[in-house]
Design a protein around this nucleic acid. Structure first.
Lengths: 264, 264
DNA sequence: CGTTCCCTTGACACCGATCAACTCTGGTGG
DNA sequence: CCACCAGAGTTGATCGGTGTCAAGGGAACG
């Protein structure tokens, strides 16, 4: 094998590499953790199976005790809690690279639904396989911890958002968050990205009504902060939108993982 | 020294034994996990140091990178996020047995404050010690996972609460949650427990104003659901309060931990 | 070319915020 | 033991952000 051949192979492998199911997950994790090439390969190996889920269908339902965990590969999903009066609250948006139900096995069963908001693809991994993983790959184990702790930090920020910000700031903040999170997985390289959410979905996520979301979006447009049509959001004034939403990306902890203490 | 003296000493030691710093933590974890006696001893050993924190003082502040983690031993605390306009949102109440900052090391730094709401005592443990722990005590490791995942589930329920329930249901739900959580650590054996929170604190937690919390509490009292005075909450009608708040304790995952898959 | 979502708009109602005063309680010092 | 004081709880009047209801418009899709 000549060296050119090797190089070509590598390029090809690389090209293929950007279309494997869990590329977004790998992108997200390797941005914060010192993953070795083997670590990355292990993730890909573990995520080799994926299935399609049509829009509006459940990925997992409340009460289920799945023996596979699910990872978003393509499309959008949401964590949903339904209330007895027929209303519902979305507690998280899931985008490619996000876990739907990491470690549910430990809790026993799901306490909420995960629903596809668009046609989606999810990878599924036997829990056994995922739980064995940190034993041999400690850095990967820490990266998984990082992911779940960041999910929790996002949730805290949602409480702040819904609890203390008015509709205008609230939606501004949400858009900033989604922008930052999509950037982390490479789905918003400029300040424009696909946002396939209806105003009703936004309302269910922010504790508002669709009508008022509509009015608020118009205000944001009128202020020249965003453009939103054809399911595409363009942030016209990133600094302005952040200011409007009081957004500080710190809680997303995009820096490097803290160094392992044993390395001190 | 007479034998009476010795006996008195022993009684005192015994009395102290049921007041070891992390008794509440042990109670909470052993209710869901199959902890061996050694597991419990390990927790006690690890939590041997505690310090007092006066009311209103920080246990940890945003931006800190503590090298000890903190566990509530006595008193109440809250996770607090401050907003630029001077308002604040509480995202969690911490009671004895709760972790203040488990695994912050992984995220690098705190993204919010933890503040004592009453005079409190916290145990502190070097992170190193805690991180090494699951290696030799897998069941304990799973129990710690359980604790953080339940914290996340509680947070999701708060989003639902603030996002979709009116003030009346909201406060009813909160009281049900605190009741259930305090029961788990043995601090609410009957339907009455210490609730040393001002109406202002309740307001900051529920996205309301103190004035409206006051009015809502009066409604709850008028309905004969609760009694609240002298910092003591008595739930007069548990079923009624749960119905009012739409409370379903499922999300607290008080059942046993799912059996380890390797035992199948 | 109709149907089905979704977005948009207007009129009106109401929950909870705001402002401002007053009361009660527990602690502290004279 | 009483007088005071600060912090918390209570109350009333009014305002405003957001919900509700209802109707109309537009774009995608069969």
């Amino acid at each position: 094998m000549g060296s050119e051949m090797l190089r070509a192979d590598k390029r090809k492998a690389l090209a293929r590499a950007v279309h494997r199911p869990c590329d977004y997950l790998v992108a997200k994790l390797s941005a914060v953790a010192d993953l070795s090439d083997e670590d990355e390969e292990v993730i890909h190996a573990v995520c080799r199976h994926a299935r399609a889920v049509p829009a509006r269908q459940h990925i997992i339902a409340e009460g289920e005790k799945p023996d596979h965990l699910h990872i978003m590969v393509e499309g959008w999903a949401a964590r949903v809690k339904n209330l007895p009066d027929g209303s519902r609250q979305i507690t998280a948006f899931l985008v490619p690279g996000d876990f739907c139900d990491l470690y549910v096995t430990i809790l026993g069963e799901m306490d909420h639904d995960v629903v596809a908001l668009t046609d989606a693809r999810v990878a599924y991994v036997p829990h056994q396989e995922m739980e064995d993983l940190p034993r041999n790959r400690p850095e990967l184990g820490r990266a998984l911890w990082w992911a779940t702790l960041v999910d929790e930090a996002v949730l805290r920020e949602w409480v702040v958002n819904i609890g203390r910000r008015d509709a205008y700031r609230r939606i501004a903040h949400l858009f900033c968050e989604l922008h930052a999170r999509l950037q982390m997985v490479g789905l918003a390289d400029d300040d424009s990205f696909s946002l396939p959410l209806t105003q009703e979905v936004l309302a269910d996520a922010q504790g508002l009504t669709p009508v008022y979301v509509n009015r608020t979006l118009q205000t944001l447009r009128r202020q020249g902060l965003i453009e939103l049509s054809q399911r595409t959001l363009t942030i016209l004034d990133v600094a302005g939108l952040r200011k409007a939403g009081g957004f500080d990306p710190n809680y997303l902890h995009r820096g490097r993982l803290a160094r392992r203490r044993t390395q001190h």
